[in-house]
Nucleic acid binder design. Sequence first.
DNA 1: ATGAAAGCGCTAACAT
DNA 2: ATGTTAGCGCTTTCAT
Lengths: 337, 337
Amino acid sequence: MTRLTLESIAELAGVSRSTVSRVVNNHVSVRPEVRERVLAVIEQTGYQPDPAARRLAGQRANIIGLVIAEPAQSLFADPYFPRLIQGITQACNPQDLTLSLFLFHTKEEEANLYPKILHNNLFDGLIIAGMHVDDPLVSQLIENDIPFVTVGRHESPKVNYIDTDNMAGSHTAVTHLIRLGRQRIGHITGHLNNRASLDRQDGYLNALRDRGRAIDPTLIERGDYTEASAYEAMHRLLAKNVDAVFVASDSMALGALRALREANVKVPDDIAIVGFDDLPPATLSVPPLTTVRQPIRRVGILAVETLLDILDNGLEPARRVILPTELVVRETCGGRI
Amino acid sequence: MTRLTLESIAELAGVSRSTVSRVVNNHVSVRPEVRERVLAVIEQTGYQPDPAARRLAGQRANIIGLVIAEPAQSLFADPYFPRLIQGITQACNPQDLTLSLFLFHTKEEEANLYPKILHNNLFDGLIIAGMHVDDPLVSQLIENDIPFVTVGRHESPKVNYIDTDNMAGSHTAVTHLIRLGRQRIGHITGHLNNRASLDRQDGYLNALRDRGRAIDPTLIERGDYTEASAYEAMHRLLAKNVDAVFVASDSMALGALRALREANVKVPDDIAIVGFDDLPPATLSVPPLTTVRQPIRRVGILAVETLLDILDNGLEPARRVILPTELVVRETCGGRI
DNA sequence: ATGAAAGCGCTAACAT
DNA sequence: ATGTTAGCGCTTTCAT
């Protein structure tokens, strides 16, 4: 059986190639009865248009790329990206979009990959996640006129983005700890080359300021979103007599909890912990984690929808979405106010 | 700036389109000096061949698809698939392969997706993971002459696959528990619609038989690779007086551990636990998990290499790879023999 | 409303 | 060794 083409469908339906094309693309000018007939043949043969040919003829390819601008090792230590991918594919499938994944494992690979992404004519648009604050990719994308959406906010007014309210979420979390009477509240940050981490840190700082608390920079320890980094950071904070720690992700909160358990520190009695994400680890930790819920899957879905909107309508000015976050109080913070 | 094509490069280099094509594709018959010149222009302009056009002209598109034949929800609860994806992309990047991801979220989506995958002419080949034992995809792939590799073994002699030695790994794990003197060894299975789960169960059964132990079917509880399912399964096993449980994945072992902790059962003193995977959760659990290590990333890498081999050389007869597994003894089994 | 024909960027015979 | 030419399957004017 030779491959099905427009031509073969046309022949079977007794019409011309163009007519079949019109039917496939839902053009208006085709008689209902003819359309019916063509549709029947397509149904029956299981014909699918060739995306390569389509793309070449100047149409959409119905392929979007997801670039995760973060070395793959750290990437999947956290359920964040898997969850995001879930949201993205969930939005892709009903739209008949195919998702291409661009990951790299070393800086060198990154350097090789970017030009390929920029000049790869194959996909219709791009979603960029895990982006660093100084990432040159965005400006290159703009220069090359490639439609894209970033996951995480971006300064440039031309950039369409979807983000969650990292700043407000952190602010709420830290304010909660203050209200509960905690005096020395530490913070374990994520990678500070990342907008979200900076925003979460700012939320922490602002919450303290807003309540008239002095900032003690030694109470801020850097992590990198791995469990292990937070484990170590927590060990350092232990020496500084904190009675609460706001941790920039759930996975890291687990690391902090592990350090505390080993040090025989009672949570929340001696030290309260609040995480960020509300991913499965949060419910399963011992004790269950108080954390800031962010709608990750929703971010993925909106990223796809926004990209599609750009493709269809140009979308000027840029769409900038910040989704609300929510404090989920469980047991590691020691109180519901 | 108009899009770069073969033609424009040809003009800039003062040669014909075909020559540029030959250079790009590393054909022999082109003078070193000309090749040099063309290469320089390509380098300087950042030209990248259009994959769609390439594909259409009958060449490779350098795109491979990854189908995860498992609803996406359960999929990313476990670090298994992310790790596999890491391996796959790690092998794809140096080969200039782009990876397309096919996931579905409902049975209905699955039904819609399969025909699309089968007739999507865009990719050169497919990697199939998370496949169910009765999955019709494999036979359809064969019928449609689509090159593919499965992650997980398959009966059909035509199928190229990469798998880990689930049976031997489980056998070793259970034998270890027997040697340590455990008398009532239970098993929490994965989805039994999955070859790997069945193999792990068989390894468990065979280990008992080989040591002359009677099989008690009530000591086998079904899980589905989620933490929660194992949590519940462990609760059921608790009523049955087991003194050890072999759990089909690390994530599930975490669930079992949680159930035991809540029931105030001492691990490993009262009940020993052995998991499967040796993914990060295993080291981080309390106590650290004894488990069967399988080289997941390596599986991904080999899957890509095998697919490429099929594409290049046809690969007859089919390549069937079973990678060894290894028991990693930590603290939940209570002894090193 | 439908068909004919050109062309998207590329590869691969076929010439030279 | 290099240039010329004919498609690959599709969309899209342009005719009719």
